[in-house]
Design a protein around this nucleic acid. Sequence first.
RNA 1: GGUCCCGUAGCUCAGUUGGAUAGAGCAACAGAUUUCUAAUCUGUCGGUCACAGGUUCGAGCCCUGUCGGGAUCACCA
Length: 603
Amino acid sequence: MINAENTVRECAKQAVGALYGDGGALPELQVAKTRKEFAGDYTLVTFPLLKLSRKSPEQTATEIGEWMREHCGETIGDFNVIKGFLNLSLTPKFWLGCLGDLMQTPNYGFVCDSGKSVMVEYSSPNTNKPLHLGHIRNNLLGYSVSKILEANGCNVLKANLVNDRGIHICKSMLAWLRFGGGETPESSGMKGDHLVGKYYVAFDQAYKAEIRQLMERGLDEEQAKREAPIMKEAQEMLRRWEAKDPEVYGLWERMNSWVYAGFDETYRAMGVSFDKVYYESNTYLLGKELVQKGLEQGVFFRKEDGSVWADLTGDGLDQKLLLRGDGTSVYMTQDLGTAVQRREEYNLDKMIYVVGNEQNYHFQVLKLILGKLGFGWADGIYHLSYGMVELPEGKMKSREGTVVDADDLIAEMIETARTVAVEAGKLDGLSDEEIAEISRMVGLGALKYFILKVDPKKTMLFDPRESIDFNGNTGPFIQYTYARIKSLQRRGAGAGDTAAAASAGAQFDEGRVPEPKEIELIKLLAEFAGVVRQAGEEFSPAVVAAYAYDLAKEFNQYYHDYPILKEGVSEADRQFRLSLASQVADTLGRAMGLLGIEMPERM
RNA sequence: GGUCCCGUAGCUCAGUUGGAUAGAGCAACAGAUUUCUAAUCUGUCGGUCACAGGUUCGAGCCCUGUCGGGAUCACCA
């Protein structure tokens, strides 16, 4: 009953079968929501049926409409025909029943268990610098997609693969040894990841100074970059790390622990979490046996210098290196190994990698090679490729200091939310704790919604001025709608019958005729399940965001025109409207929950 | 040069997989408030869907080409 579109489709199918069927297969029927300019709820497009009916579009539509009204009178109330479009209106009784069903389905739209296991890998930071705006998009996407897949009944494992090794870490370590004077997060009061990031920058500055000196002595730039003593020392440090030199290894562990403490704080502030954390220092050797096996199977080949390659020229790609001449592995080797390991460990149906689109080629190759090695599950690998976040001035460049720091941005958003609310007198009479909590929800809600409403695969522009706007198509707009309904519920409760309105409200006056706006709202509420499914299929939080905005906007218009608790509203209207509003709030709350956005009870 | 992605209102973005007269928000302007919360609502202005062909009853969407923007093609990760 809830799925109105399917109900219409079923009835239309019967109609077409009865009128024009010859027992053969019928074409897929095109049923869509009726456009706002026309009367009706759902529209059947008859053009594809003309071959079958051998009549004009108008005649065909009229015939089908009449048949449906006659045989499905419980649901189909009226119809009109414009050109080849059959616009069908459903009966008030149908819509009331639909709302009743929605109210008795507490988790409408969420599937319990699809029996599928999915791993979503996201975040995957380097440990040499703090998180920035690009990471925020990554984290929000990964977390939201995890929620969406859970809502689709998947058993989701959120994974983080931390890049904790390599030359970049050694750079921070070396600079800290040279210039740090024993400084720690405790002694400096600095967040650990920022402290380590500071020394990464310090290394870069020292490195550049050395290059300049060498070039003044007559070396060309390439030579100078190679010969700079500080770089040589960093490379030496990496060798000592790989040899597990206690001194270097100890420092590495110590500085990484600072970074992890800092990251944890940022993750907590963003409201994201992980079920499983991997470290590249543990996984970077994986995949070598796999390459060996592929070599024996003839899937790969060896060059004269001993390096191993996959030849993908037959697939329109190039050759890909898998093992260096000295037998050491590369990025691809490791990813092949970890994929196989995860698949064996968790028997995953899908593996989703939330990684920027600059790695499209990498994941294309990864899938292809796993397929060549005979792993059928390679089809279940999906690279959730997202576009860059750009600033009004252009791309973020760490060298030019235009990187937007994650911690700073979050703090700024929350502070702005607080200022705006306090100035508007929204939070008068609340305690400091309550003000802080609401500001946090609203500030983060603005940030998260601003980023997640954009289709993941598109490059997006982050304009700080716009992101901090709380009007229009924004997170706070939706939160506000929710808070207003919560306020209604509190007041309604004061009048005496909360539970009645909320739970037992499923029975309405049979003869009630809902307003068009009310039908529009019920229709939207009923669409939620389809939205959750679509968002899951497309791995797109943006689908959910658009829906939440539509619903909030629709409700705000309704709220403006129809009093709910005011004087003079009949008991029946009050009951019905409050039930409808409650259903809207509930759906908004769950939709925004899929985006990782919390909803304040008041704001 | 090869491969992939993108191009929709001044700006930021939608466009339900090929359906009706292409929609929102922001910005600008004009209105609505003795507030069931105005962080709201209503209206005006704003378009050669980059361009040119093609496919068909019908194209912003599919195909081909052109132009423009981005990414990638490392014994970096």
